[in-house]
Write a protein that binds this DNA or RNA. Structure first.
Lengths: 239, 239
DNA sequence: CGCCCTATGTGCGCTGGCGTACAGAGTACG
DNA sequence: CGTACTCTGTACGCCAGCGCACATAGGGCG
């Protein structure tokens, strides 16, 4: 069954001109990503790149002692595996599925062939990579200067933007791993948000009940990143 | 006077095949960068990209309240202005000269023309951008998990790698701005390093006297980044 | 139903880094 | 040569987040 609108659930695929998308379609393979699944271990070569539809993937930087920090998050607006077309083939970071869902994947070689045509796909992927750069930079600043409270808000909003509903399936333990803080710290911050009536959660399920409230409480980092994504990835730029 | 070896002080230019370098030469303009000079303000379009020779440029993320954090550092191994060829034209970060010295610069349009030939220059710049990604990611983790002591070591080593001598012209105040910490924190950490005999400093001049000592004390972040730069930017990859 | 495992809540002492304030010491410059 | 400014040292209280320990509670599953 031919479903063009299905591809377009991913913003990058959706921004491709018809010609490019048609060329790629035969190679796009739909897969379901499970919570916690690893798409890429540190330093490992990826066989495919992934275009999430309703799934969310976290890029993590893991340290020798095992503690980790999320450096960026990828959802339907992006692609996992930029190192393949950037030429490095591998990266020192891990890619973990943070929210289960579907994605299209493409064999690395197919993507590279398309990329090296130096057409719309290349321009699009490079713009996306720049957005990713901004996200990482802002994450670095946020880690330095902002409280766990604010970072939790940022994280929730970033996730929400990449989901269809308003519920996240995610334990506080996992959030703590993402943010690189203690689980107890997340418990405390989440408790505040719940008391303030912004979210309600229960054993691994978080429901955002007052998104504007979250936005009022989040640090500027969220808006900076969002603005940059909007600027870099809209239809004006893909002639 | 024709001085091919001069260009090659910058690793990226040095890795270019003769043909590409020859094509660019007429457009490469040598400039002297002064300490504290701004090459790019947040959100501003750059007219040129800069290939540092013996100068060092810091990429900073500035926040609304004015406090800032260095997210990456660029020296003779790289180029300032990746957003020009990545397609975004601007970035939300600032580029400030951290150590005075020379650089070659290239008009934005000339670089883009070369980039869109999709030849060795493009591959090289993309590999460099990936290295930059790694540096930012590692900076984010380091900000989260490591002490000011360790971060100061990392910062000193990163700077040292990009200088010819073993002396940095840099006040503790400026270092604090880079690391996004208090000036007093830097004073304290630098004092420890001096007592340990690793560095000696005096009113804006820091001399590294025991580099192996610094390397023994630095966190893993330094090595991760260095390894990735070495891997991505060596002559094997530019066929 | 009862057991166990997982998720969350809470409390405690500790410490690193913050904000602030101020004191000495170099250095530039009139 | 003296003054003004910059750079560095030090001290104090404060607090966010850490590490640890342990208490509850929900849910799955035999």
């Amino acid at each position: 069954m031919f479903q063009p609108q299905d591809f377009k659930k991913n913003a990058l695929l959706g921004l491709l001109p018809e010609e490019e998308l048609t060329r790629l379609m035969p190679h796009l393979e739909k897969v379901t990503l499970k919570l916690g699944q690893s798409l890429c271990e540190s330093g490992q070569q990826m066989s495919h790149v992934y275009f999430p539809l309703d799934s969310i993937v976290s890029l993590l930087c893991v340290m020798e002692n095992g503690s980790s920090t999320e450096i960026a998050v990828v959802g339907h607006e992006g692609v996992v595996g930029v190192s393949l077309f950037m030429g490095g083939e591998t990266t020192p970071s891990r890619a973990i599925v943070q929210s289960a869902g579907d994605a299209y994947r493409l064999k690395g070689q197919v993507l590279k062939n398309e990329f090296y045509r130096a057409g719309p796909m290349q321009r699009l992927l490079l713009r996306y990579t720049q957005a990713l750069l901004t996200q990482m930079a802002q994450t670095a600043v946020c880690n330095r200067h902002h409280s766990v409270d604010q970072q939790l808000c940022r994280w929730l909003l970033l996730s929400l933007d990449r989901l269809t509903g308003d519920e996240l399936v995610m334990t506080q333990e996992l959030i703590a791993n993402m943010l690189g803080v203690r689980r107890e710290g997340v418990t405390e911050s989440a408790g505040k948000l719940q008391k303030a009536g912004l979210i309600s959660y229960h054993r691994g399920h978080i429901t955002v009940t007052d998104r504007p409230g979250l936005e009022a409480r989040v640090c500027e980092c969220y808006a900076v990143v969002k603005r940059e994504y909007d600027r870099l990835l809209n239809h004006h730029h893909v002639a």
